[in-house]
Design a protein around this nucleic acid. Sequence first.
DNA 1: TTTTTATAATAGTATTACTATCATTCAAAA
DNA 2: TTTTGAATGATAGTAATACTATTATAAAAA
Lengths: 225, 225
Amino acid sequence: MKLHVQIKMNEALFLRDPESSELGKNILKHSIQLIHKSGFEAFTFKKLAEDIGTTEAGIYRYFENKHKLLLYLTAWYWGWLEFQISFHTNNIDDPTVKLKRIITLLATAVEDDEQTNYINESLLHQIIISEGSKAFLTKQVEEDNKQHFFKPYKDLCAVVGNIILECNLAYKYPRSLASTIVEMAHFQNFFMNNLPSLTDFGNTKEESEIISFLNDLVFAGLNKS
Amino acid sequence: MKLHVQIKMNEALFLRDPESSELGKNILKHSIQLIHKSGFEAFTFKKLAEDIGTTEAGIYRYFENKHKLLLYLTAWYWGWLEFQISFHTNNIDDPTVKLKRIITLLATAVEDDEQTNYINESLLHQIIISEGSKAFLTKQVEEDNKQHFFKPYKDLCAVVGNIILECNLAYKYPRSLASTIVEMAHFQNFFMNNLPSLTDFGNTKEESEIISFLNDLVFAGLNKS
DNA sequence: TTTTTATAATAGTATTACTATCATTCAAAA
DNA sequence: TTTTGAATGATAGTAATACTATTATAAAAA
């Protein structure tokens, strides 16, 4: 039995549900490929349309603009990751072990999970590392937030924050530590590969080292106070 | 006696040195105002030209494109901040005290320092918080890095990393901890003001709390190992 | 005075980010 | 079976963006 993960998406993110048609799925699939290849700035609906073999207008029937598409992809990713996390930590009782497991999941390159053939999770993970912050680093954050576009991200951070609290009820900054872990799992990866002198892993470029760093950072903080 | 801080800029960042003319200084001044007001995405050289009262072509004589201008502004900011840090920690011997001082400087809103009347450091600080990451989160990071456009940022992180080492010679991740501190000083500020549930400071919105969080995070990590 | 240099004024191009219209297909409802 | 309607394809068109080029003019340096 293969359980099919269906991430429930905020309907305000799209005009027409991309998961409801072949064209829609192609939009998701090819946008991931294109953004991964050329970056979000160079990515346009025209290029995407050419890539798919449809027209620009066709894409616009699904997504209002490329920012909404990025919001969609990031929301999908965080939703998917939260599921992965809950799945892989399901049977773990010790919150410390749980938190370590989560750090590993956050900082490890994901392999494409064949469940959803129109979404390449591995590429999407890399997109989130380099482009993810651009989803909220805009003048419209407030509006986008009011429409709950960041809910999956905030939910995931809340999950992590709660486990942090379970590890140490007296710890004063569970939410900030959670967002720090999540952001740094990605940033240290980006730095390691692109600006290596900003990390201690420039030589090996091993994700395992990011994991060690985060574990060290987190558990020192939690055990102290 | 007023000492005039002159940040030495990488000449490959501009076509004509903006600090060498009135128009150039106006470009810096008004670009900071405009980017702060409307965000980097909505910012165009046309609007900037209208704002200054010159023409688009006039701007292009100074900067190749808006990405270079952003690189210039971020490089200026990090150079300026490194000077501020070295100035304000100059006479401090104890590395722990020094590091705390740096964390405070990183996380505190700067007041406009009248030295350079064409650069509003306070606005620039806010720009770095919301737009700074976009300087390196691009497909051209590698090229830009080869041209040393991120040197001021990397230098600052190196300074912080070295002080971390002074605090604890056995600590294994001084560079990564340094970049974490620098990034989080900004991200936690952005989150606090825009996505408050990702932090523990949503109610008070006090920078002092970010400082406490970072101090706690850093010194727990350093004293443990 | 001549020459250089910076700027202003104007024009023009390719691409981007859309919106609108109309014809076609194909499946479901009447 | 016909009708309807929803999704798509094809084509156009517009305003704004991201530039480049040309010429004239004014100010500063030689």
